[in-house]
Amino acid sequence: MTVSPDHGHAIEVRGLTRRFGTFTAVDAITFDVAAGEVFGFLGANGAGKTTAIRMLIGLLAPSAGSARVAGFDVSTEAEQVKRNIGYMSQRFSLYEDLTVRENITLYGGIYGLSDGAIAERMASLVERLDLGRDLDTRVKSIPLGWKQKLAFSVAVLHDPKVVFLDEPTGGVDPITRRQFWELIYATAEQGTTVFVTTHYMDEAEYCDRVSIMVDGRIAALGTPAELKARFGGETIDDVFVRLARPGAAA
Protein backbone atom coordinates (compact mmCIF):
# COMPACT_ATOMS: atom_id res chain seq x y z
CA MET A 1 0.00 0.00 0.00
CA THR A 2 1.37 3.42 -0.90
CA VAL A 3 1.65 6.16 1.64
CA SER A 4 -0.36 9.29 1.05
CA PRO A 5 -0.51 11.88 3.78
CA ASP A 6 -4.10 13.02 3.44
CA HIS A 7 -6.29 10.49 1.67
CA GLY A 8 -7.86 7.24 2.66
CA HIS A 9 -5.82 6.42 5.76
CA ALA A 10 -7.67 6.10 9.02
CA ILE A 11 -4.41 5.50 10.87
CA GLU A 12 -0.94 6.76 9.92
CA VAL A 13 1.98 5.79 12.12
CA ARG A 14 5.50 7.17 11.55
CA GLY A 15 8.45 6.03 13.66
CA LEU A 16 6.24 5.78 16.73
CA THR A 17 8.36 5.04 19.78
CA ARG A 18 7.81 4.72 23.49
CA ARG A 19 10.50 4.25 26.08
CA PHE A 20 10.08 3.48 29.78
CA GLY A 21 13.41 4.37 31.39
CA THR A 22 16.02 2.43 29.45
CA PHE A 23 13.46 -0.04 28.06
CA THR A 24 12.07 0.60 24.57
CA ALA A 25 8.58 -0.90 24.55
CA VAL A 26 7.68 0.35 21.07
CA ASP A 27 10.58 0.89 18.71
CA ALA A 28 9.98 3.18 15.72
CA ILE A 29 6.98 1.46 14.18
CA THR A 30 5.61 2.74 10.85
CA PHE A 31 2.44 1.63 9.08
CA ASP A 32 -0.88 2.82 7.64
CA VAL A 33 -4.38 1.47 7.96
CA ALA A 34 -6.90 2.28 5.22
CA ALA A 35 -10.41 3.52 5.88
CA GLY A 36 -12.80 0.57 6.19
CA GLU A 37 -9.99 -1.91 6.64
CA VAL A 38 -10.03 -4.73 9.23
CA PHE A 39 -6.49 -4.65 10.58
CA GLY A 40 -5.17 -7.38 12.89
CA PHE A 41 -2.49 -6.26 15.34
CA LEU A 42 -0.74 -9.40 16.59
CA GLY A 43 2.19 -10.05 18.87
CA ALA A 44 3.33 -12.19 21.78
CA ASN A 45 2.68 -11.02 25.34
CA GLY A 46 5.15 -8.27 26.10
CA ALA A 47 5.86 -7.48 22.44
CA GLY A 48 4.57 -3.92 22.88
CA LYS A 49 1.01 -4.13 21.50
CA THR A 50 -0.72 -2.61 24.51
CA THR A 51 1.75 0.27 24.71
CA ALA A 52 1.27 0.96 20.98
CA ILE A 53 -2.52 0.92 21.31
CA ARG A 54 -2.43 3.24 24.32
CA MET A 55 -0.50 5.74 22.19
CA LEU A 56 -2.90 5.36 19.26
CA ILE A 57 -5.96 6.06 21.40
CA GLY A 58 -4.41 9.15 22.95
CA LEU A 59 -3.82 7.79 26.45
CA LEU A 60 -0.03 7.70 26.39
CA ALA A 61 2.33 10.27 24.89
CA PRO A 62 4.92 8.92 22.42
CA SER A 63 8.63 9.37 23.24
CA ALA A 64 9.35 9.91 19.54
CA GLY A 65 7.67 9.66 16.17
CA SER A 66 4.08 10.51 15.39
CA ALA A 67 0.70 9.02 14.64
CA ARG A 68 -2.52 10.36 13.16
CA VAL A 69 -5.73 8.55 14.00
CA ALA A 70 -9.04 9.52 12.40
CA GLY A 71 -7.26 12.58 11.03
CA PHE A 72 -5.90 13.87 14.34
CA ASP A 73 -2.42 13.88 15.82
CA VAL A 74 -2.21 11.65 18.91
CA SER A 75 0.35 13.93 20.58
CA THR A 76 -1.22 17.35 20.02
CA GLU A 77 -4.88 16.50 19.45
CA ALA A 78 -5.43 13.63 21.86
CA GLU A 79 -8.91 14.85 22.86
CA GLN A 80 -10.14 14.92 19.25
CA VAL A 81 -8.68 11.45 18.73
CA LYS A 82 -10.69 10.16 21.70
CA ARG A 83 -13.91 11.68 20.36
CA ASN A 84 -13.50 10.09 16.95
CA ILE A 85 -12.66 6.54 17.95
CA GLY A 86 -14.36 3.68 19.73
CA TYR A 87 -12.55 1.36 22.13
CA MET A 88 -13.49 -2.03 23.51
CA SER A 89 -11.31 -4.07 25.83
CA GLN A 90 -12.03 -7.64 26.80
CA ARG A 91 -13.66 -7.09 30.17
CA PHE A 92 -14.10 -3.54 31.25
CA SER A 93 -16.20 -1.81 28.65
CA LEU A 94 -19.64 -1.95 30.28
CA TYR A 95 -20.98 -1.10 33.72
CA GLU A 96 -22.10 -4.42 35.17
CA ASP A 97 -24.50 -2.92 37.72
CA LEU A 98 -26.32 -0.82 35.12
CA THR A 99 -28.95 -2.26 32.81
CA VAL A 100 -28.45 -2.64 29.08
CA ARG A 101 -30.59 0.47 28.49
CA GLU A 102 -28.66 2.50 31.08
CA ASN A 103 -25.32 1.53 29.58
CA ILE A 104 -26.41 2.59 26.10
CA THR A 105 -27.84 5.89 27.41
CA LEU A 106 -24.73 6.57 29.49
CA TYR A 107 -22.32 5.98 26.61
CA GLY A 108 -24.54 7.92 24.21
CA GLY A 109 -24.34 10.86 26.63
CA ILE A 110 -20.58 10.56 27.04
CA TYR A 111 -20.19 10.61 23.26
CA GLY A 112 -22.35 13.72 23.12
CA LEU A 113 -25.28 12.22 21.19
CA SER A 114 -28.68 13.93 21.48
CA ASP A 115 -31.55 12.16 23.26
CA GLY A 116 -33.18 11.59 19.89
CA ALA A 117 -30.03 10.08 18.43
CA ILE A 118 -29.60 7.84 21.46
CA ALA A 119 -33.20 6.58 21.16
CA GLU A 120 -32.68 5.90 17.48
CA ARG A 121 -29.40 4.02 18.02
CA MET A 122 -30.93 2.07 20.88
CA ALA A 123 -33.82 0.92 18.69
CA SER A 124 -31.54 -0.23 15.89
CA LEU A 125 -29.22 -1.99 18.32
CA VAL A 126 -32.09 -3.80 20.00
CA GLU A 127 -33.27 -5.03 16.65
CA ARG A 128 -29.86 -6.05 15.35
CA LEU A 129 -28.76 -7.89 18.51
CA ASP A 130 -32.25 -9.09 19.46
CA LEU A 131 -31.94 -7.45 22.88
CA GLY A 132 -35.59 -6.46 23.39
CA ARG A 133 -36.26 -8.74 26.35
CA ASP A 134 -33.04 -7.80 28.10
CA LEU A 135 -33.11 -4.04 27.80
CA ASP A 136 -33.87 -3.66 31.51
CA THR A 137 -31.64 -6.49 32.69
CA ARG A 138 -28.41 -5.64 34.47
CA VAL A 139 -25.41 -6.29 32.28
CA LYS A 140 -23.86 -8.63 34.84
CA SER A 141 -26.65 -11.16 34.34
CA ILE A 142 -26.63 -11.37 30.54
CA PRO A 143 -24.51 -14.10 28.91
CA LEU A 144 -20.89 -13.31 28.09
CA GLY A 145 -21.44 -13.60 24.34
CA TRP A 146 -24.21 -10.97 24.37
CA LYS A 147 -22.16 -8.79 26.65
CA GLN A 148 -19.34 -8.74 24.13
CA LYS A 149 -21.66 -7.99 21.22
CA LEU A 150 -23.25 -5.24 23.28
CA ALA A 151 -19.85 -3.84 24.29
CA PHE A 152 -18.86 -3.73 20.64
CA SER A 153 -22.09 -2.02 19.63
CA VAL A 154 -21.64 0.55 22.39
CA ALA A 155 -18.07 1.18 21.21
CA VAL A 156 -19.41 2.13 17.76
CA LEU A 157 -22.54 3.93 19.03
CA HIS A 158 -21.25 7.31 17.90
CA ASP A 159 -20.20 6.07 14.43
CA PRO A 160 -16.48 6.50 15.07
CA LYS A 161 -14.07 6.52 12.13
CA VAL A 162 -11.91 3.92 13.86
CA VAL A 163 -12.72 1.31 16.47
CA PHE A 164 -10.03 -0.41 18.56
CA LEU A 165 -10.82 -3.91 19.84
CA ASP A 166 -8.41 -5.35 22.38
CA GLU A 167 -8.90 -9.15 22.51
CA PRO A 168 -12.63 -8.84 22.04
CA THR A 169 -13.47 -12.55 21.79
CA GLY A 170 -11.62 -14.09 24.74
CA GLY A 171 -13.39 -17.02 26.35
CA VAL A 172 -16.55 -17.12 24.23
CA ASP A 173 -17.87 -20.19 22.47
CA PRO A 174 -16.90 -20.79 18.84
CA ILE A 175 -20.30 -19.86 17.39
CA THR A 176 -20.51 -16.58 19.31
CA ARG A 177 -16.93 -15.80 18.29
CA ARG A 178 -17.95 -16.10 14.64
CA GLN A 179 -21.09 -14.04 15.13
CA PHE A 180 -18.89 -11.37 16.66
CA TRP A 181 -16.68 -11.34 13.56
CA GLU A 182 -19.72 -10.92 11.37
CA LEU A 183 -20.59 -7.81 13.40
CA ILE A 184 -17.05 -6.59 12.72
CA TYR A 185 -17.44 -7.19 8.98
CA ALA A 186 -20.77 -5.39 8.88
CA THR A 187 -19.23 -2.39 10.65
CA ALA A 188 -16.22 -2.31 8.33
CA GLU A 189 -18.52 -2.52 5.31
CA GLN A 190 -20.05 0.78 6.42
CA GLY A 191 -16.62 2.38 6.34
CA THR A 192 -15.49 2.13 9.95
CA THR A 193 -11.88 1.04 10.31
CA VAL A 194 -11.41 -1.88 12.69
CA PHE A 195 -8.12 -2.31 14.56
CA VAL A 196 -8.16 -5.60 16.46
CA THR A 197 -5.85 -7.70 18.64
CA THR A 198 -6.44 -11.40 19.30
CA HIS A 199 -4.73 -14.52 20.61
CA TYR A 200 -6.85 -16.68 18.30
CA MET A 201 -4.68 -17.14 15.25
CA ASP A 202 -7.55 -18.37 13.08
CA GLU A 203 -9.13 -14.95 13.61
CA ALA A 204 -6.08 -13.31 12.12
CA GLU A 205 -7.15 -14.89 8.83
CA TYR A 206 -10.39 -12.87 8.97
CA CYS A 207 -8.45 -9.61 8.78
CA ASP A 208 -7.71 -7.74 5.54
CA ARG A 209 -4.12 -7.29 6.73
CA VAL A 210 -2.21 -8.24 9.84
CA SER A 211 0.96 -7.02 11.48
CA ILE A 212 3.04 -9.13 13.83
CA MET A 213 4.95 -7.28 16.51
CA VAL A 214 8.14 -8.76 17.99
CA ASP A 215 10.20 -6.98 20.67
CA GLY A 216 8.69 -3.56 20.01
CA ARG A 217 9.03 -3.70 16.22
CA ILE A 218 6.75 -4.72 13.41
CA ALA A 219 8.38 -7.90 12.14
CA ALA A 220 5.84 -8.56 9.39
CA LEU A 221 2.90 -6.82 7.78
CA GLY A 222 0.67 -7.92 4.93
CA THR A 223 -2.43 -9.82 3.97
CA PRO A 224 -2.68 -13.24 5.63
CA ALA A 225 -2.02 -14.88 2.24
CA GLU A 226 1.10 -12.76 1.66
CA LEU A 227 2.52 -13.55 5.09
CA LYS A 228 1.94 -17.27 4.69
CA ALA A 229 3.64 -17.21 1.29
CA ARG A 230 6.55 -15.05 2.48
CA PHE A 231 7.33 -16.90 5.70
CA GLY A 232 6.27 -20.36 4.61
CA GLY A 233 3.42 -21.73 6.69
CA GLU A 234 -0.01 -23.18 6.24
CA THR A 235 -1.60 -20.91 8.80
CA ILE A 236 -0.95 -17.56 10.45
CA ASP A 237 -0.26 -19.57 13.61
CA ASP A 238 2.79 -21.08 11.86
CA VAL A 239 3.98 -17.64 10.76
CA PHE A 240 3.42 -16.24 14.24
CA VAL A 241 5.40 -18.96 15.98
CA ARG A 242 8.23 -18.62 13.46
CA LEU A 243 8.51 -14.86 13.99
CA ALA A 244 7.67 -14.51 17.65
CA ARG A 245 10.01 -17.21 18.90
CA PRO A 246 12.65 -18.12 16.33
CA GLY A 247 13.90 -21.61 17.08
CA ALA A 248 10.72 -22.63 18.87
CA ALA A 249 8.85 -23.44 15.67
CA ALA A 250 7.76 -27.02 15.22
Binding site: A44, G171, H199
Partner: peptide, 9 residues
Protein backbone atom coordinates in the same frame (compact mmCIF):
# COMPACT_ATOMS: atom_id res chain seq x y z
CA UNK B 1 -6.07 -18.15 28.88
CA UNK B 2 -4.70 -14.74 27.94
CA UNK B 3 -1.32 -16.27 27.07
CA UNK B 4 0.02 -15.78 23.53
CA UNK B 5 0.08 -18.57 20.96
CA UNK B 6 3.76 -19.36 21.37
CA UNK B 7 3.68 -19.55 25.18
CA UNK B 8 0.58 -21.71 24.92
CA UNK B 9 2.46 -24.26 22.83
Amino acid sequence: TGVDAVSRR
